[in-house]
Amino acid sequence: MKAAVSRVDVLTGPASTPDDVAALVDRLIGVALRGLPAMRVGDGFVFTMRGVYDAAGRPRVLPEGSSLRYTAITALGARLLPEDRQRAVLGGVSVDDLVAGLVSRVLDTGTGAVTSLGDVALVCWAAAACEHEDLPRVLARLAAMDAGGAVFTVDAAWVLSALAAAREVVGVPDLRSHYEWARRRLLLGVREGGLFAHEVNGRGLVPSYRAHVGCFADQVYPIQALARAGDEEAVRVADRAAERICTAQGDAGQWWWHYDARTGGVVEGYPVYSVHQHAMAPMALLDLAEAGGTDHAEAIRRGLRWMADAPETDRPLILDDLGVTWRKVARRDPRKAVRGTRAMTTRVRPGWRVDALDRVVPPNAVDTECRPYEFGWLLFTWLNASQGGTR
């Protein structure tokens, strides 16, 4: 087996010498470690930190809501920190403590029971990563909820990733039946263009006019899950999807938002999300390379550089002192009319674009929010050790 090394070192080694990328990743990790403590609320993490500006133009952030899902993702990332650093970002508790609380919530089937398949899958994944003693019960809960029918693609991918993690834990019950079902479901969800739409294994979760559309998350999480499955067929399907999104990547490294799963083309590029640039795309593509898939190191580097120099705006997206990265660059289109129009036109005729929309609704608005899962995936991506699959 190859020796594990830092993913940053692999990505920025002698063959590529992009010192700016290494410095940027270090900077982003520092921002995450500063920002996460302020996002702690109750026994979990907030839904979002919303940025507001005072009369002098100085920003501050205000916590809003709470999210079990985002807490589980944060746990997956923070688990890779030394325990003293875990406690620093988690309000004095360890990741094991945080996950124990999540497991209790998932196993409570009374009033207020967790009903989201994706949430339960993420908690199962975190419980597997921590080898929690109640992992078998969480797996049973996940299996009971995953009864078939239409399911969102992201949820289906998280189920497979959770089961792939759980099968590595000694002493868990036989997962083969559920694992193979989840793997096959995701493989059958890929469309003729090599990409995934917003749902798999059925119809009815999304309107028919955008049934052909899949967002960036609908591509990244399946790529990651299939890479973690690791078998030849799964890696081949993940490789094709990765090739499609990398071919479509913007000139400045943008990972676009909506795709036509039938053709592999872009339906609508904006918003461009910071978490896609600094965490989710690198996470999936690095997992893929380490599973024997294609190396997309240069696409990862381009995506990271967008964070420091986004051409759509002159406003900084990384606010070091505040401990946030602003969530996205988008159109000033609160009704999402551009996305809707492009979904409908491409449904009628693949590739049909109303180019005038780019002039009428330019993509120059910055969404001043930051959510804890963004930093959870950031830590998960860059603190994981690589087995040398990329260069």
Rank of each mutant, 00 (worst) to 15 (best):
F196T: 07
G204M: 02
M307L: 15
V338N: 05
R327D: 03
A156N: 09
Q224F: 10
M1D: 06
V99M: 03
G77D: 00
V46I: 13
A238T: 04
W352P: 07
P14S: 09
V61G: 01
A284R: 12
G253C: 06
G265K: 02
D309P: 03
E83F: 06
T74P: 01
G389A: 11
E268T: 13
A128I: 13
A385G: 14
V220M: 12
D146T: 14
T115Y: 01
T247L: 13
H132C: 04
A23V: 12
I29K: 14
W158D: 00
V31W: 05
L285V: 14
V21Q: 03
P372W: 01
T17C: 06
E232A: 09
G250Y: 08
E233G: 11
G389Y: 12
L160Q: 06
D231R: 09
Q224P: 00
R342F: 10
Q86C: 01
Y221K: 11
F45A: 05
P350L: 09
V348L: 15
V21I: 15
V61Q: 04
E233D: 15
A356D: 11
V123N: 00
D295Y: 00
A330W: 06
E233I: 12
I245E: 02
W255S: 03
P350Y: 09
L195N: 04
D43C: 02
E180N: 13
S94N: 02
R85G: 00
L36I: 12
D321C: 03
V151A: 11
G171Q: 13
S16G: 04
L286T: 02
I73E: 02
V338Y: 06
Q387G: 05
K328C: 11
H198S: 15
D239E: 09
T17F: 04
G202S: 03
V272M: 10
A23R: 15
G91M: 02
A281Q: 02
I300P: 08
F196E: 10
D84G: 07
F216Y: 13
V10T: 06
L226V: 14
R210K: 14
S66L: 00
A3R: 14
A150D: 05
R240Y: 03
H212N: 12
A32M: 10
G149N: 02
L226R: 03
W257Q: 07
V114E: 00
R335L: 07
T381A: 12
V366R: 13
L304W: 12
A88K: 11
L383G: 02
D19G: 13
G253A: 07
E312P: 00
D260K: 01
L62H: 13
T381Q: 11
R332S: 10
T325V: 15
A75C: 15
A23L: 12
E168C: 04
R347A: 15
